[in-house]
Design a protein around this nucleic acid. Structure first.
Lengths: 332, 332
DNA sequence: CTGTTAGCGCATTCAT
DNA sequence: ATGAATGCGCTAACAG
C-alpha cells in the first residue's frame, strides 16, 4: 500500500533501457519509435509519474507561479486568480494560490516559502509590502502586482490596477446628467478607498456636484449599514457613492431602516459588481472591475516581460458603469 | 540582478565550515554556539533561503498539503480552505490552493500535478472523481474529502460533510411550529441538492408539511429567479425552502417582480449563510454551514490519522438554523 | 561538536 | 539512437 512510488530508474529497469532513454521519451528527445512505445507501456503499467521535485531541482524551473491573495472571500480576488490561471494553463504551467489574510508579516513569510519552493513567478494581489522588503524577499523571482497597496516605484515591480479615478468620473458624469447636485460618499480603506475618495473630491466640482458628506467604512456590509445610519441623519443629498458593493449592501439596510424608498428617495452606486449585486433590491448600479482581465494581463506580463505590447510601471484598466435600478433622477 | 541564488555551499564556504554544519544550524542539530552565530550571520548577509525543492527531494516531505477547490467564488469554499490553513499553520505546514472549475478531467490532472510535486496530503473539496480513479491518481498520498460529490466507499478516503438531512429537519420543524402547512422547494443540483431535496420529501410528512412544488435550479441567483417566477404561478404554499442562499437571492427578485411582500406573504429559507445573506431584504433565514470547522476537521484527520478522537468513513456536521426576518407565520 | 560521503530522482552532457 | 557519468542543493549517516 504505502510502498515508494516508482522512479525513473524503476521504469528503465523494467523496460531494459537506461534512465536517459526513459527521460528522453518523456521529454521528447531523439528515440527509436519502438523503444518509445515500449517505455511508454512500462510507464503506464507502473503508473509512473515523474517526480516534479527532482525535475525542478535539475531544471531550475518549477512551472508554477504563486498567486498571493489577501483572502478568498470576495469574488474579485477569485476572478483575478482565474485570469492568471487562464494564461498559465495556456503555457502548460500551474497556479498555486496562497492566502495571507491581510497581514504584512504573514505576507512576507508566504512569499518566502513560495520563493524557497522556487516558483517561476509571483502574482501579488493587494500586496502591502514596500519595495525594499519585497526586493529582499523575492530575490531573483519575477513579480507582478495586481492592485498593490503601496504604489511600487521600483522598476522591478510592474503593476496592473483599476483606474479608480476614471471609474468614479463615469459615475459622477452620469449622476450629474440625471440632475443630481449634492452627493454623499461611503469611503473605504486602503489605497482603493483613498483613490476613490480623492477622485470624488477632485472631480465632483467639475460636474457641479457638491460632496455633502463622507463617512468611513472598512468595506464590509456591517460598516456600510452603520455608516449609512450615520449618513442618513442628514438628508441634504440625493445620491450616495459607496466605496464598494458590500458596503452598498449594508447601506441598503440602513436605508430600509429609515423607511427610504430606493431609488426614488435616494440613488445608490457601488463599486466592484459582485455576482449578487444585480440581485439586491433594487439591483445595484455599480462600477465593474474586470478582475479576470486584470489577472490575465498580470500573468502575460510575468511570462513575457519583453512582449511586443510590453508595458512598464503601472498598467491601468477602466471599470465600466453597470447601470441598474438603484440609480434614478433625484426626487423633485 | 539575475544571478543564481546563494546555496548551502556558498554559505559554508563564506563561513569557513562544511555544508553539514550549516545544515545543522538551520535544522537544529548539535553545533557550538559560536559557529552557529557565525553561520547565521553569513546566512543573513547572503540572504540565503534554503531551497525547499532540494530539501524535499532528500527528506521526501514537502510540508505542504494541496487543497483542491471547485472554484473560488463562493465564500464557503474559502471558509473551508481557511479552516485547513488554521491547522496546517499550527503544524508549520502550508496549504496551496488549486482550482478545478468543476471539470472531472481537470480535477484528475490537478491532483496528478499535486502528487507529482509530492504534497504531503490532499484535501479534496466537492470532488467528482470516483474511488478507482482517485486511487489511481493519488498513489500513496493521503486524502481527505470535504463534501465529496460521490460518496466514497473506499476506506482510504475519509470524508467530512454537512448533514443536510439534519439541517433540513431543523427548518421544517420551525416552519411547522410557525403554522405552515404547504411548502415549495427550489431544488439544487449535485449531491447536496439531492440530499436536501430528498430530506424534504422524506421529512415533510413527519411535520405535517405538504411539499406542493419543486423546481430545479443550478444554485445560481439567475436560476433562483427563473425558478421563482415559475413557482409563483401557483400560490398554494406559504413557505419556500431554497437549496442555497444564492438561489434564494434570485427568488427574492422573482417575488418582488410579483409584488409579493416578504415575509408577510411568503416565508423564504436558504442554505449556507453567506456573508451578505443577512443584508438581503428581508434578511434571510438560512442554515449555516460551518465551513471553517469542516476544513479544520479535515486537516486534523489528514495530519493525525490515528488520533485519539479518530474517525473513519464519513464525519458529519450539523448546520445551524439562523433565524432572520425572512421567516414568519403564514398569512392568515 | 564537526567534516566526509553518499544519495534523493531526474535532465543532460559526452561518449559510443 | 542509446548508455554512462555528472550534478542540481540538500540531509543523513558515518567517522573523527
Amino acid at each position: 500500500m504505502s510502498d515508494r512510488p516508482p522512479t525513473l530508474h524503476d521504469v528503465a529497469r523494467h523496460a531494459g533501457v537506461s534512465t536517459a532513454t526513459v527521460s528522453r521519451v518523456l521529454n521528447g528527445g531523439p528515440v527509436r519509435p519502438g523503444t518509445a512505445r515500449l517505455v511508454r507501456d512500462v510507464v503506464k503499467r507502473l503508473g509512473y509519474v515523474p517526480n516534479q521535485v527532482a525535475r525542478g531541482l535539475v531544471t531550475g524551473r518549477s512551472m508554477v507561479v504563486g498567486v498571493l491573495v489577501p483572502d478568498l472571500v470576495g469574488p474579485l480576488n477569485a476572478a483575478i486568480a482565474r485570469g492568471v490561471e487562464d494564461v498559465l494553463e495556456a503555457h502548460g504551467m500551474h497556479a498555486v494560490i496562497v492566502t495571507d489574510h491581510r497581514d504584512v508579516v504573514r505576507e512576507a513569510k508566504r512569499i518566502e516559502t513560495l520563493v524557497a519552493r522556487r516558483v517561476d513567478g509571483l502574482v501579488l494581489i493587494g500586496s502591502e509590502l514596500d519595495d525594499p522588503t519585497l526586493t529582499d524577499v523575492t530575490a531573483t523571482t519575477p513579480v507582478v502586482h495586481v492592485g498593490a497597496e503601496r504604489a511600487p516605484s521600483d522598476e522591478r515591480f510592474p503593476e496592473v490596477r483599476i483606474d479608480n479615478q476614471a471609474g468614479i468620473e463615469k459615475a459622477l458624469a452620469r449622476l450629474a446628467e440625471l440632475g443630481h447636485r449634492r452627493i454623499a460618499h461611503l469611503a473605504g480603506p486602503r489605497r482603493d478607498g483613498r483613490e476613490r475618495h480623492d477622485a470624488i473630491r477632485q472631480l465632483a466640482p467639475r460636474y457641479e456636484l457638491a460632496l455633502a458628506h463622507v463617512v468611513d467604512t472598512d468595506f464590509s456590509e456591517e460598516a456600510g449599514r452603520d455608516a449609512g445610519a450615520t449618513l442618513l441623519r442628514h438628508r441634504d443629498f440625493t445620491a450616495v457613492l459607496c466605496a464598494n458593493d458590500r458596503s452598498a449592501a449594508g447601506f441598503y439596510q440602513a436605508a430600509r431602516d429609515e423607511g427610504l424608498n430606493l431609488p426614488d428617495d435616494l440613488t445608490v452606486v457601488g463599486f466592484d459588481d459582485l455576482p449578487w449585486s444585480a440581485y439586491l433590491d433594487p439591483p445595484l448600479t455599480t462600477l465593474r472591475q474586470p478582475g479576470r482581465d486584470m489577472g490575465r494581463l498580470a500573468a502575460e506580463r510575468l511570462l513575457h516581460p519583453e512582449a511586443s505590447d510590453a508595458w512598464r510601471g503601472v498598467r491601468t484598466l477602466v471599470p465600466n458603469l453597470v447601470a441598474r435600478e438603484s440609480m434614478a433622477p433625484p426626487p423633485t
